[in-house]
Write a protein that binds this DNA or RNA. Structure first.
Lengths: 138, 138
DNA sequence: TCCTTTGGGTATCCAATGGATACCAGGTGC
DNA sequence: GCACCTGGTATCCATTGGATACCCAAAGGA
């Protein structure tokens, strides 16, 4: 809190204030910098079902381009969340799987996935209402 | 499962297989399309500490541009996760806060935040090891 | 012999996104 | 008259993402 110009009126502060999100080196922020993109989470979820090969994965994650799939897998591997194993068949086959570390991350994400399944209709409704208000105001 | 070409060998399948991530209309995917960007989650976390005004928020979320802050807040408001209230002071002041719906989402994200705080060192270590291997291979 | 197919990518090109900077409104104090 | 406040837009440029084409090496068909 480098200065006192912002006043944060209590209200759940005890639950959320840790982690100092404003600092670029906070852990939550580092995690988000790595996995908060369109594909990482989806890929992890599919890998959570079991090891899978590149092209099969590409078919399961609807809409992902080959470029982004290979790029995202590379960064997940670098972060130790996913492992890549090459089997010298012909043509060569490459299998991806979650590591134990990646598995613990997926467990942590599960409650968010559950939230999505129960609450997304409410989000869709809020969006419709918002658009309605906007077009009314016009 | 439009065909049987991919075989998913058991291994946590019962936990993760629901939600059919390959379909673009699965709820998890819809949620990710909305909040899986660099700023949404960070903004929600700061808002979780209590209502806050635009410029104060901009200072707390280190590195966010005015453009992205206003754009992200607009989309969070549209999704019913954040509320915006204009107070007719001089100059006018605008306060943002999480809605009850946004609050439940933050609760669901908490375990991911906890994971980040405990496991990010491991991710950093994995990354260093990976880079080491790469430069060795070179 | 040549052509095609296969898996797992890379190279290239173009459109969309994000960040930096400038500008705006309009009321207020100097 | 001038600069300053908040809460934004408008504009420009660099980076990212998606579509497409190409690559390798071996197998299989004509």
């Amino acid at each position: 809190m480098q200065d006192g110009t912002f006043h944060t009126p209590g209200h759940r502060q005890e639950t959320w204030a840790r982690g100092d999100v404003f600092a670029a080196n906070c852990p939550t922020r580092q995690l988000l910098d790595r996995i908060a993109d369109k594909w990482s989470t989806l890929i992890l979820i599919v890998l959570g079902e079991g090891p899978i090969r590149f092209n099969a994965l590409k078919q399961r994650v609807d809409g992902v381009s080959q470029k982004m799939l290979s790029q995202t897998l590379k960064s997940l591997e670098r972060d130790g969340l996913v492992s890549r194993s090459v089997v010298a068949t012909v043509p060569v086959s490459v299998t991806y799987a979650v590591t134990p570390l990646g598995c613990t991350l997926m467990a942590a994400m599960q409650s968010m996935i559950d939230w999505a399944e129960t609450q997304m209709p409410q989000v869709a409704a809020a969006q419709t209402a918002y658009d309605q208000r906007s077009s009314d105001a016009h």
